[in-house]
Design a protein around this nucleic acid. Sequence first.
DNA 1: ATCACTTGTGGGAGCGCTCCCACGGTACCT
DNA 2: AGGTACCGTGGGAGCGCTCCCACAAGTGAT
Lengths: 351, 351
Amino acid sequence: MASHGARGRSGGRPTLEEVAARAGVGRGTVSRVINGSPRVSEATRAAVEAAVAELGYVPNTAARALAANRTDAIALVVPEPETRFFAEPYFSDMLKGVGAQISETEMQLLLIFAGSDRERQRLAQYLAAHRVDGVLLVSVHADDPLPDLLTQLEIPAVISGPRSAAETLTSVDSDNYGGARQAVEHLLSRGRRRIAHITGRMDVYGARRRADGYREALADAGLPVDGTMMEPGDFTEEGGRRAMAALLERHPDLDAVFAGSDVMAAGARQVLRETGRRIPDDVALVGYDDSAIARHMDPPLTSVRQPIEEMGRRMIDLLLEEIADRRPAVSRGLERRQVVLATKLSERESS
Amino acid sequence: MASHGARGRSGGRPTLEEVAARAGVGRGTVSRVINGSPRVSEATRAAVEAAVAELGYVPNTAARALAANRTDAIALVVPEPETRFFAEPYFSDMLKGVGAQISETEMQLLLIFAGSDRERQRLAQYLAAHRVDGVLLVSVHADDPLPDLLTQLEIPAVISGPRSAAETLTSVDSDNYGGARQAVEHLLSRGRRRIAHITGRMDVYGARRRADGYREALADAGLPVDGTMMEPGDFTEEGGRRAMAALLERHPDLDAVFAGSDVMAAGARQVLRETGRRIPDDVALVGYDDSAIARHMDPPLTSVRQPIEEMGRRMIDLLLEEIADRRPAVSRGLERRQVVLATKLSERESS
DNA sequence: ATCACTTGTGGGAGCGCTCCCACGGTACCT
DNA sequence: AGGTACCGTGGGAGCGCTCCCACAAGTGAT
């Protein structure tokens, strides 16, 4: 209410002590009220809350951080240049989920880009100074030293897209294996039998899992698994084009293509068109990511959708758990936590 | 070098005191070295720096913030939902400039979205807690209470795009007036004489300045300034379409259009095409922003480019100055600081 | 009535820094 | 020789909080 007298008194912002004096209680009691401790009587709590409102008291974060050895902040580290970050809907969807979930808490989110060496240098300093309670890592390459640095500094961290099946950090991922199966089974159900796969870079765990899903879906359907029906792209449009051309050379009679990403599917589509093949009449095409590209392609592309926003939300949940677990210093929860979320096929005209 | 024994000693991170002991000096001296004070002898400085390196000392930011009453962090506040932020190249270009400039300093950048009411609530708390030393404000509407809140809290702030000619905050802007003149003068030099203008929302200062530039460029060329040759759009494609239709109704013989934004130009282009007019043969078209739209339009759109990255850089410079100025509590520098940067015309086939 | 708990509360200690005052030393004046 | 100036340095005080121990008052078992 009368949040105006706030900056009178000593000229600056009111302190815990001033609130305590005003409410006629001790410093400790005010601290308990502020932090929601249950060990405070109803009457006292009300008195303190009134004093807080009257003085317009806002806790001093620096003091709290110093005394309690925590920062109430977590960092979202993007190991990519800003430009890529903005170009890809993956990041903005994830940020949306992260932002939504964190706004339910008192935590503060920091966005840190670590694309250049200089930025990485600063980040290392930043982490060494323990300026955040935890870290969210998105899109980390297999050989990135960052995860190990975090482990060494004992900073809680959650990674999106584990680096391998043996990922040591807590991770959130979509079901790449299952997603790929969905795509292939969909093509099978449409009567396709000569299904090729353009894979992503095979040093990316998710891409390997998708290839696994492709293979096993075929095997389970009693179809032969032919290595020459697979060709690596590198997640780019040009890579998709090259891979498609290579596949057509080996198998001019293929009747379906499952591409490991929408961007590669776009490249593949061009080559299919150029060689006079109609989509989906001659060759059915399925992508992965269900991005804007998929919706705007001609014809619209059937694609596997990952629940990216949901992944962002789960990452926050897991990270907060890790942070809470670590507080009592027990370092329990030694079990690795790996969350895998289901994908969903968005069926469109390309298949 | 031997940055390994770092976390031995007391189990945690080394403190100033430990560094002092190791270097055989006092706490104050170490502090001076860390903060680059000139009042330290060369020999002592070297000894301290060696100790810092050996122990892997990193200052505790919370303690520093508490003792010095500063945070070494500034916030970039985006009063828009995340989605718009990512959609517009304006923001990412600005972020690039801001990020580049701030990485030259020890300051930390926080990205804060304040699109929803809830987010605004949190932001107000955040600012009240003085968790940042300064604020960068981008794309603020005329009636936004944020600038006044910042003034009231005495938090240094720099705004991109002043709200009016009487903007009280330090501001950085591109030369909207000059940019509009460039556009119109370009059309005049191409022999166009019946030039219409689709304005932006007239409650946006920049849009008014562009209209001023349009008018005065015509007047200076000795041409009549006709109010019916101007029509407000609202910065949307649909608005551009409507405005174009209205202008053609009144002046079917116009030979050029200067649109207040590329997006509106895209709308105008559609109407021009639909009414059988060729660009640039029958009607020349010029936009504003020089965005991706301009480059990809058919025909490519001549457009006024704003130095957005440079604006971001200047904003940081100005903000750091403000913060530094305020430190000695003198609150000098009462002169309003308004920086205006020049625009440049990107000439393409539409004119 | 005594003892053992529990509940609510007050306040000391201390987190790791910066700020600033005081002090010894050297250099230069009178 | 004494005085004045400054430079480089050490360390006390204090920033505003949390943590935790101590303690008063209440509760119920013995």
